[in-house]
Amino acid sequence: MTVRNRGALAAMAAGVAALTVATLVACGSQPADDVGTEEATALASATPSPPAAAAVPSVPVTTGELPADAATVPPVRLVIPQLDVTATVNAVGINERTDEFEVPPSVDQIGWYRYGPGLEADAGSVVIAGHVDSAKQGKGAFFRLRELDQGDTLTATGSDGRARQYRVVAREEYAKTKIPLDRYFARDGKPRLTLITCGGPFDAETRRYRDNIVVTAVPA
């Protein structure tokens, strides 16, 4: 075998090695597949409204008083035994500048969307979002959210002191540009708890994750 041949062989061996490493890395980085998408979608379908009645049906009458403050029960604590997570839940709204969900800046705390249903609601999606991580603070409360699987349990405790059990039915990953947020922030459909964080490939330049991880749970 010539020297030239040996060089070529070495180059090919190096190439094979590089590709092997690349393949291994790529396989190791694959997120777990979505589970329960159909269940999550079914939960969101609104209860069918009664068909348009006859020309002049009987009519509900209310006293036209100014609306009172609704009695919602905010979640104050979320426990996820599977992930060894116990986190304080803050009531949060919308960031005025970005029009986005105001996730609490402290990564060990998570935020409940105060405009949506509370734990008392018999319909709609209670939304809690938390950081997966932060450049300054490290891992967040929802760092391992994507490890949750169907059947795992969660406990959300309300401001009324009552602990409510939930069972995970779905875990999905969506590109942030494609996520059906209307479904997860719906105020109708079956009562459910929706946990949201970031995931997928990370763009180091924009410091943004491409995707959102969404876990849907129903009262257990």
């Binding site: 690349a22 890395v25 790529a26 980085s29 694959q30 997120p31 970005t98 986005e100 969900f101 996730v103 979002a129 938390g130 950081h131 997966v132 991580d133 932060s134 450049a135 603070q137 490290g138 891992k139 967040g140 929802f142 760092f143 994507r146 942030k176 996520i179 947020l181 949201i196 964080t197 970031c198 995931g199 997928g200 490939p201 990370f202 180091a204 410091r207 943004r208 994750y209 491409r210 959102n212």
Partner: peptide, 14 residues
Amino acid sequence: GVPSGDGGQAGTGV
């Protein structure tokens, strides 16, 4: 949207 991470430690993909 729900922006909830800028650390990159949980990045999947390559």
